[in-house]
Design a protein around this nucleic acid. Structure first.
Lengths: 153, 153
DNA sequence: TTGATATCATTTGCATACGAATGAATTTAC
DNA sequence: GTAAATTCATTCGTATGCAAATGATATCAA
């Protein structure tokens, strides 16, 4: 390698050439596509509920009655977003709302009987969605990927 | 391990107990959170442009003038979504539109001089966004993660 | 050549997603 | 004990994201 090549390589390492920017290789772009693919798989298996709606029901099943805000924290949704999700679940009779007796700011959310039936029925489908989303990877790759993805999230 | 334990393990492997469904461990949920984190990092560095808007500019820089639909394919956006993104970039003078001379269905999109300046200026920031998004991982982990993520996307 | 298909773009409707502003209620600090 | 800060929820505005329907144009096939 010539001295000039070394110089060029040095420049490349310390300050990459902007010509070499490839959108397709950026983690954000691929992350968005992977997420899109997952949502598409989800919709193919569970057509009448979105992933955020499912997340709300699944988490309510875990923790029981909680405040709307607390639920939002648990499923990584801000207050404005979670309100819309809960409104739609309420309109479909899957959750019910009530006021907190002591802290009058809080709006309590809980599953209805119908909501509980729905989430129990959907969990096996959700397992299949996870399986299908990860299908391009081997068992060992899945373990590795999930560990690294968790670090990024 | 007792015979009963073996039976329980067998049942668990073939038909997992629905009690054991944990939203926080599902790939879709973590993917959504990782994507959220990336978007947040993006916004901290590039406040006046969204990731999809940036993607459109970056891809136009790569390929030059293209039809709106073709651009959508290249950046994984459906026709309805790409229209909104392009409309907003046009309103800000970063892209310009023209009609295809031969195929009158097509709407051609291209960078304006201002759009080209903008994307050139933003690419170094985008590199930093990628770096920060991947910061929780070591160099070796990054290589592994990107390979597996690409398989899923 | 013309009738069926396919493609490109647009529009509408619905569902996240989040920043910012607001108001009500609670908690903290002094 | 009250003023300041915080928390909870709501609303508004903007921006994806996608399904479905529509209209215009192009292509294919008989």
């Amino acid at each position: 390698m010539s001295a000039e090549d070394n110089l060029l390589k040095l420049v490349e390492v310390e300050e990459p050439d902007d010509q070499d920017y490839h959108l397709q290789e950026q983690v954000g772009f691929i992350l968005r596509k992977a997420h899109q693919r997952h949502v598409s798989i989800f919709a193919a298996h569970i057509g009448d509920l979105t992933p955020p709606q499912f997340a709300a029901l699944a988490k309510l099943r875990d923790v029981g009655e909680t405040s709307q805000n607390q639920l939002g924290t648990l499923i990584a949704m801000d207050a404005a977003t979670v309100k819309g999700v809960i409104d739609r679940l309420k309109a479909r009779g899957l959750v019910e709302l009530s006021k907190h007796e002591i802290d009058k700011r809080r709006l309590l959310v809980n599953l209805t009987a119908e909501g509980r039936d729905a989430i129990e029925r959907l969990i096996p489908l959700a397992r299949e969605i996870t399986r299908e989303t990860l299908a391009p990877l081997s068992a060992k790759e899945i373990a590795t990927f999930m560990k690294l993805l968790a670090k990024l999230a």
